Amino acid sequence: TIEDAIKKLLKLAQKGQPYTFGDFTVTSEEEAKKLAKWLKKQL
């Protein structure tokens, strides 16, 4: 689910690992949080 993807994304971001989700490449926890907010709006 999208919720699971968001959780995984935040965990990876906390470890400092870049994470690619579709067109987004997230390289920081701050970016992960922005992406998570955006994804929730898409639901």
Rank of each mutant, 00 (worst) to 15 (best):
T1R: 09
T1I: 08
T1G: 04
T1L: 11
T1Q: 12
I2H: 02
I2K: 01
I2R: 01
I2F: 09
I2V: 09
E3G: 07
E3H: 12
D4F: 04
D4Y: 07
D4G: 05
A5R: 08
A5D: 03
A5G: 02
A5K: 08
I6Q: 00
I6V: 02
I6D: 00
K7G: 05
K7V: 10
K7L: 11
K7I: 08
K7R: 12
K8S: 04
L9D: 00
L9R: 00
L10C: 12
L10V: 05
L10K: 03
K11W: 13
K11N: 10
K11S: 13
L12A: 14
L12H: 09
A13P: 06
A13D: 03
A13I: 13
Q14L: 13
K15W: 14
K15M: 13
G16Y: 11
Q17G: 07
Q17Y: 15
Q17E: 13
Q17F: 15
Q17C: 15
Q17R: 02
P18V: 07
P18N: 06
Y19H: 03
Y19Q: 07
Y19E: 03
Y19S: 05
T20W: 10
T20F: 11
T20N: 07
T20I: 07
T20Q: 07
F21Y: 07
F21T: 03
G22A: 06
G22Q: 04
G22V: 14
G22W: 13
G22I: 12
D23Q: 11
D23C: 15
D23G: 09
F24L: 15
F24D: 04
F24T: 01
F24W: 13
T25K: 08
T25S: 08
T25Y: 13
T25A: 08
T25G: 05
T25I: 14
V26C: 15
V26G: 02
V26S: 03
T27I: 08
T27Q: 06
S28V: 10
S28D: 05
S28Y: 03
E29K: 07
E29V: 11
E29A: 10
E29Q: 07
E30W: 08
E30D: 11
E31W: 11
E31M: 07
E31P: 01
E31F: 08
A32R: 02
A32F: 09
A32G: 03
A32I: 04
A32V: 07
K33T: 05
K33Q: 09
K33V: 10
K34L: 08
K34A: 13
L35I: 07
A36E: 06
A36N: 02
A36V: 14
A36Y: 13
K37R: 09
K37F: 11
K37I: 12
K37G: 09
K37A: 13
W38T: 01
L39A: 01
K40N: 04
K40H: 11
K40I: 15
K41A: 11
K41E: 14
K41M: 11
K41D: 14
Q42P: 01
Q42A: 11
Q42R: 07
Q42I: 12
L43A: 06
L43F: 08
